[in-house]
Design a protein around this nucleic acid. Structure first.
Lengths: 157, 157
DNA sequence: CATGAAAGAAGCCGTAC
DNA sequence: GTACGGCTTCTTTCATG
């Protein structure tokens, strides 16, 4: 799908705040509310906009700790990797999981209430998998930036 | 702010899809649309819901690569660290940045169009800071999970 | 104090131009 | 692309347990 300057301007706006009314969006990008409606609907259908969600502050739900875990696997056998991926996907505390090339194999970003909860999770996710050679834990002291906005237009030099 | 079962059920729903109408939400949790409206407004004001945003598919904007970078700093002097944090915050390709305890000091999750863009960013962010001892690059081969939903209720173990 | 019902305001979205 | 109009959704008020 081809995106013009109007689409990009709309994407930039709704990535910051999806509650802005379509006529306010129109005023911002110089378009009628009907045109805004059509463009947003199109981008939703084409998957440019994956979904619209509320972002919840983890602290208000007791999730005080962000932990990053680098996991090294024993075997790269596809069925074993898939089983691991599935267990990471199913775990609600796992916010993100990347399968990476490099020194380790998986990088996980997790949200936990306390260290006990993390310890418990490492048992479930790593020890019980029987395919984890080792893992390294990095505890976040400061979540400097936790963003969701994809760069739009010419921001990225 | 104290959250009851209704609030938690609403949070769980709007974290998945914030476009559901308030009366549909009400039907789901057994509450009138007016009550849903009041509760959502309250949680917005108290910061339990930080914001509501559209999630954009990076691939549709040409951002094909996810790169994780572990940065080791030269000096832990506060003013130098702050300057680094600011530069990470200001960089739109940096999706997340954590200041961590452990083997390295910063973990960055970045979204780039290609390796050239990443190389260019490492120059701007790391070499020009004059406070980076070294960094390790992990390229994601598969974004297994990139979620935003904070666990709610008894999902956690 | 939070709820549900109902009325008024605001926003969405199809049709026409 | 814009302008209009019906229809849905939101939001406030008010009486109630």
């Amino acid at each position: 799908m081809r995106l013009d300057q109007f689409d990009l301007a709309l994407l930039e706006a709704v990535q910051q705040d999806a509650t802005i009314s379509q006529q306010d969006l129109g005023a911002r990008v110089n378009l009628s509310s009907a045109a805004v409606n059509r463009r947003l609907k199109k981008m939703n259908m084409h998957g440019v906009i994956r979904k619209t969600v509320a972002l919840v502050d983890p602290a208000h739900l007791g999730y005080a700790l962000t932990v990053i875990t680098e996991v090294e696997v024993e075997s790269e056998r596809l069925d074993l990797l898939d089983a691991m991926k599935r267990s990471f996907l199913a775990c609600p505390q796992v916010q993100q999981c990347y399968y990476v090339a490099g020194a380790c194999d998986f990088v996980l970003v997790m949200l936990v209430r306390n260290m006990e909860e993390y310890t418990q999770l490492t048992r479930e996710l790593f020890f019980e998998s029987n395919n984890v050679k080792g893992f390294k834990t990095l505890v976040s002291m400061s979540n400097v930036k936790v963003g969701t906005a994809v760069p739009v237009g010419s921001e990225g030099h």
